[in-house]
Amino acid sequence: MRIGFDAKRAFANKTGLGNYSRFVLDSLYNHEKGHEFIAYTPKNNKNLFPDFPQKSVIFPKTFFDRKLSAYWRYSSITTQLQKDRVSIFHGLSNEIPRGLAKANIASVVTIHDLIFEKLPSHYKAIDRAIYRHKFKSACERADAVIAISEQTKGDLIDIYRVDQNKIHVIYQDCNPVFKKTVDLQKRLEINKEYGINAPYVLCVGTIEERKNQLRLVQAFTRIKNKEFKLVLVGKQTLYTQKIHDFIAENNLIDQILILENVPTDHLPALYQEAELFAYISIYEGFGIPILEALNSGTPVLAAKGSCLEEAGGPGGLYADPYDLDDITNQLQKLLDNPGLRKSLAELGKQHMEKFTGKQIAHQLLELYTKIDRHNL
């Protein structure tokens, strides 16, 4: 089969949708050798995916398409796919172009989450309208829909009334760098570089209201174990100021550290040295940081109510993200009990076997084969 992919995010986005796109393409390329995988992208100028073969990266052909790349991705790419004899097209980030069915090209779209529908106050009205049109249209036109979690599948059925038989839950994995043990001396050097000189709880993710870091900070101030620090890693937003204000008002500057622009190759060391990973986000489509933590051998405290219990499985404890007492109690339980942390970490490692690239590549190929119009 010749399978084309909307790979813009793989070559343009450092995190999130970019990570997912790179994971899918890398897994298929490495584990399903008998097929052609072609990545379509307007540009490739950020060196985010150097391992993917350049001969399989395709750009817009005409001057018009290069200048209007959004239109190319939405419509005129279909003509190019026909010329390239692509039999299946996979939209990796919530959308697919028009005209695929008429061109006899089977289609798959991955829907990552419907957070903008579940938490509308976190998005501008115009953005919600654009996302809703793109997502619903893609689900209606695609031959198959991939949801990255059971949570997202349920949301697609409940909110958009997508036929459940059309939806296939296929998970993803995290960057393989989190599966490699970092030498102890290197870990200690990286910790020292960031001023971490005590046992710590780690939280990684954009510092924004949905991620709920302020409530985590508030819970952390209530615990009895004052030898621990809390380290927040992520892009800062206006919400971060609320955390800074709370830290200043409660004289917590020596206990809570906020880091930004931490390179990816430093993150495995931070995860592996942490006693605990805390991620009490109010709502997620999947929760890749949970996989990063469990692959690092670090147990998790995560939130109930979206997909984080699905991602973390038996590798952590879970709390109501709106209930400060519940968060505090679960955090205290984990910090008081090193044996519990160790057993959760071991269970988490076993749970991670569900998310291997080889297994997921096989699931994707089974789905592509099922919908391939040339095999029908």
Rank of each mutant, 00 (worst) to 15 (best):
N191G: 11
N191H: 10
N191Q: 14
K192A: 14
K192P: 04
K192Y: 05
E193R: 13
E193F: 05
E193H: 10
Y194K: 04
G195R: 04
G195H: 06
G195F: 03
G195L: 07
I196G: 08
N197T: 15
N197R: 09
A198C: 13
A198I: 09
P199Y: 08
P199K: 05
P199L: 08
V201S: 01
V201K: 02
V201E: 01
L202P: 01
L202D: 01
L202S: 01
L202F: 02
C203M: 10
V204T: 02
G205N: 04
G205I: 02
T206G: 09
T206S: 11
T206F: 01
T206P: 00
T206L: 00
I207R: 02
I207S: 05
E208L: 12
E208I: 13
E208G: 13
E209L: 08
E209S: 13
R210N: 15
R210A: 09
R210G: 14
R210F: 07
R210D: 12
K211L: 11
K211P: 05
N212Q: 09
N212I: 08
L214C: 13
L214Y: 10
L214W: 07
L214F: 09
L214A: 12
R215E: 09
R215F: 09
R215S: 15
L216N: 09
L216H: 04
V217P: 03
V217E: 02
V217G: 06
V217S: 07
Q218N: 10
Q218R: 13
Q218V: 12
Q218P: 08
A219L: 07
F220K: 02
F220R: 02
F220W: 04
T221R: 12
T221M: 11
R222P: 00
R222F: 05
R222M: 08
R222G: 10
I223Y: 02
I223Q: 04
I223G: 10
I223K: 04
I223E: 03
I223V: 15
I223H: 04
K224E: 15
K224A: 14
K224L: 09
K224F: 05
N225I: 10
N225L: 11
N225V: 12
K226Y: 11
K226H: 15
E227Y: 08
E227S: 15
E227K: 15
F228Q: 09
F228D: 06
F228H: 14
K229Y: 03
K229G: 10
V231A: 02
V231F: 01
V231Q: 03
V231M: 02
L232Q: 03
L232G: 04
G234D: 02
G234H: 02
K235S: 11
K235Y: 04
K235E: 08
Q236N: 01
T237K: 03
T237P: 04
T237C: 07
T237I: 06
L238C: 00
L238W: 00
L238Y: 03
L238Q: 02
Y239N: 06
Y239V: 12
T240I: 04
T240A: 13
Q241K: 09
I243D: 02
H244T: 14
H244Y: 11
H244F: 12
D245W: 00
D245P: 01
F246C: 12
F246Q: 10
I247R: 03
I247F: 11
I247A: 10
I247W: 00
I247Y: 06
A248F: 10
A248L: 12
E249Q: 13
E249R: 04
N250I: 14
N250T: 15
N251M: 11
N251K: 14
L252H: 06
L252N: 08
I253F: 05
